[in-house]
Design a protein around this nucleic acid. Structure first.
Lengths: 165, 165
DNA sequence: CACAATTCAGTTGCGCACAACTAAATGGCT
DNA sequence: AGCCATTTAGTTGTGCGCAACTGAATTGTG
């Protein structure tokens, strides 16, 4: 074996660090994909993917928005959003309209069909919730942790990238 | 506005459920991508992507493995692993060899270069750890939560999919 | 006013994830 | 032995995520 725990006397901390890293990053990776999988199954009835559902949630909640605002809320750039919104438009759920005041901006509007889908989506959260096996408090706690993590990681990515080397 | 908290008297539970769903699924989604982003920055020196790093971690830890075993540990199927391992082979980090006993199986071996990279990877976990701002206990706690979630979600996805079959 | 910098959406290219499929090898069964 | 179901990798097609880029509109500055 290439990576057995080194010599018996020493605890081989290096190997342990790598093992720990494998565990934590794999856990988050796996959880994210598991979540995605459950949404995939539940959203199949609606014909939506998970990221498409996220966009629809924002639109249902806040009404028409420019692509820019969607991107800020979901932390997605135009490279991801542009084709995604186009697919939603192809499905007849949204309309895109160049803003009159600012010709650079494109507002995404819900169509009749898109608004109507909200009714059918109302059962999704409950099904997800029950799939997690967590109660409201546990979910809230986990969410707070994850947001805390995201904030720290975003900041770290910037300093690492900039010159924190 | 389309989705303000409804009338003061009634708490509009439907809207709240959708908002809650947006919050939790977005949090996990964002955390996963933030993690990915930090790894991307840190792994750039090694020329690895995050999933490629996961494969290398498993190989460093356990030595040569068939693609099947890699897939089980990382919960990835051949559709993802085959091209990924091919890219690792293209980078000179691994070799693929058909097993003699079972011609269906392909074992993934570390090359000299692939084994040597482990030394350079040793600093990665510490940099990640400091990027999270969490201590060991917090990370362990979060990991346990995420694993619990993954287990529940995987089970739910199966029952939801088959309708209980 | 003219011109440079910025903003916004979109496109291209690459890699990952997953479903659905193919092809070859293996093992079980009669 | 012959046949069939299963196992194992690999391929194809679709969608997401992100970096890098383009192009057009707007804003800032001299």
């Amino acid at each position: 074996m290439t990576a057995s725990p080194a010599t018996p006397g020493t605890p081989a901390p290096d190997t342990d660090w790598l093992r720990l890293d494998r565990q934590i990053c794999f856990s988050l990776h796996a959880a994210s994909r598991a979540f995605n999988g459950v949404y995939r199954v539940i959203l199949k009835d609606l014909g939506l993917t998970y990221p498409q559902y996220l966009v629809m949630l924002v639109l249902w909640e806040q009404g028409d928005l420019p692509v820019k605002a969607l991107g800020e809320q979901l932390r997605l750039d135009s490279g991801t959003l542009s084709p995604l919104v186009k697919r939603l438009e192809g499905a007849g759920l949204v309309r895109r309209e160049r803003s009159a005041e600012d010709e650079r901006s494109v507002r995404v509007h819900l169509t009749e069909e898109g608004s109507a889908m909200r009714e059918r989506a109302l059962e999704v959260p409950r099904r997800i919730m029950s799939a997690t096996g967590f109660d409201l408090a546990e979910i809230g706690e986990l969410r707070a942790r994850l947001d805390q993590l995201t904030t720290a990681l975003d900041a770290a990515a910037r300093t690492e990238a900039g010159g924190g080397r």
